[in-house]
Structure formats: structure tokens, C-alpha cells
Simulated scan of single mutants.
Amino acid sequence: MNNELTLIVERLETRQTLQALMPEKAWDAALDQRIAELPIITAATPSGDKTELIALMAGLHLLNESLDASHAHAQEIEDDPTGAYWHGIMHRMEGDFSNANYWFHNAGPHPAMQKLQDRAADWVRNSTVLSDLPEGAVRDGIAAIARQVRWNASAFTAMVALQESGGSSEDTRGALEYIQHLELEELFAHTEQAARHLLA
């Protein structure tokens, strides 16, 4: 894999804070510039190979909480399920919840969603976090993750919307940020794996 890409991914993976539900700016502006300058898509890249690479760029920017840059890439591949999924998360993180749900619908039953569901359900069942959360709709929604069979992106969006409207506590914010972290990890792992053969 491209050495600079490896260094960028390592920087993103070792950050000490989780991505905000609604970030106000890029986590690391200098890193965002490094992502933008990655030479992984060139004029010589066959058009059929560009989708996976563009998705990778959208994911890297979103992991760095750079919404506009991520959006620009996701818009280029909005007919692709992975592009639609990155597009949906970006809109949720900017607070455009109905638009987020539109793109989650377009992403369909994305493979990353099942892995996310398994990890999130396991976390809800086996962590002590749930019993520490205040009663309310967000806690109920988090508890429902342990019972559902498939990842419900619109239900999670509704929890984030309620949290951001002031309808819950900072404890629930931390739980939602952790679940979002799992989502970003799984989608990025899928995206990176799809692009790996193009980055040798």
C-alpha cells in the first residue's frame, strides 16, 4: 500500500478521541491536506477502478471529520452502495437527517452493516454502559440494537437527532459516539479492502 496512505491511516487509527456526532471542523487540518494530496487517483487510473479509490478518499476525509471534502468525493460515486453509505454518514454528521436516511436507503443492505450490527449488539449486551445511561428514548434505542437482526441506519439517525436536539445526556452522547465509531471502522475496513488491489 502507498506509504503515505499507510501513515495517514495509522494517524487516524491512533487518535485519542472518537469522531463527534456533529463535528464543527476537521479533526486535523494538516492531515486533511495530506489526504487531499494523496496520489492514489491519477489520470492514468482506469475509470472502472476509480469508484473504490474515490470511496477510500471519502472515508479518509470523514474519519478526519472533514465533511465537505468527504461529501465532494461521495457525490462522485453516489450510485455505488459504499459511496451512498459514506454519503449518508456525512449528512447525518452535518445534521441533515432526512437526507442521511435517503442515502442509507440507497446503500441498501451494505456488507459493512451486518458486521456493524454484530459488533454493536455484542457491545450493548456485554458492556455495563447501558445500565448507566439515563432512561429515555436514546437509551431504549441503544438497547434495541441488541435485539434487532439487521442494522437499522434510520433508527440510529433518529437517536443522533434526538441527542443533538438536547433530548438526552452526555452519557448517551458517549454511547452514540462509540457506536458511530464502530460504524466508521467497519465501513472503512470494507472500503480499504475493496481498494487494496489497486494500491499495490
Rank of each mutant, 00 (worst) to 15 (best):
M22T: 15
A29R: 05
G88W: 00
R11T: 08
D140N: 05
D79P: 08
A26Q: 02
A44P: 03
K50M: 13
A20T: 14
Q117H: 07
T14Y: 04
G136Q: 00
E78W: 13
R15I: 10
S66P: 02
H73I: 09
Q75F: 07
P23E: 11
N101R: 05
L67G: 03
P111A: 09
W103L: 05
L62A: 02
D28A: 03
Q117K: 06
E37P: 01
W103S: 06
A20D: 12
A120N: 01
P111F: 06
D79L: 14
G59E: 00
T42N: 04
Q114I: 15
R125V: 12
A43K: 15
E78P: 02
W27I: 08
P111Y: 10
A137P: 00
T51K: 13
A26I: 07
W27P: 01
L63K: 08
I8K: 06
S47W: 14
A112N: 09
Q16D: 09
R125K: 13
L38N: 03
L130P: 00
G95E: 04
I54L: 04
G136R: 02
L116A: 03
N99W: 01
S131M: 06
Q33H: 08
K50A: 14
H87V: 05
E13C: 08
D118S: 11
G83R: 03
D122H: 13
D122I: 10
W123C: 06
L56T: 01
H110E: 02
A29G: 00
L133Y: 01
R139C: 00
A72D: 12
P81F: 11
L67Y: 07
H61E: 01
A44M: 11
L5A: 12
P23I: 13
L67N: 03
G83T: 06
E52I: 12
H91Y: 03
H110A: 04
S66D: 03
K115I: 12
G108N: 03
H91E: 02
R139N: 01
N106D: 05
A107E: 02
V9N: 00
I8R: 08
E24V: 14
A69Q: 07
T14H: 07
I89W: 02
D79Q: 14
P39W: 05
D49L: 14
T45S: 09
L130S: 00
P81H: 10
H61T: 06
D49A: 15
D132F: 09
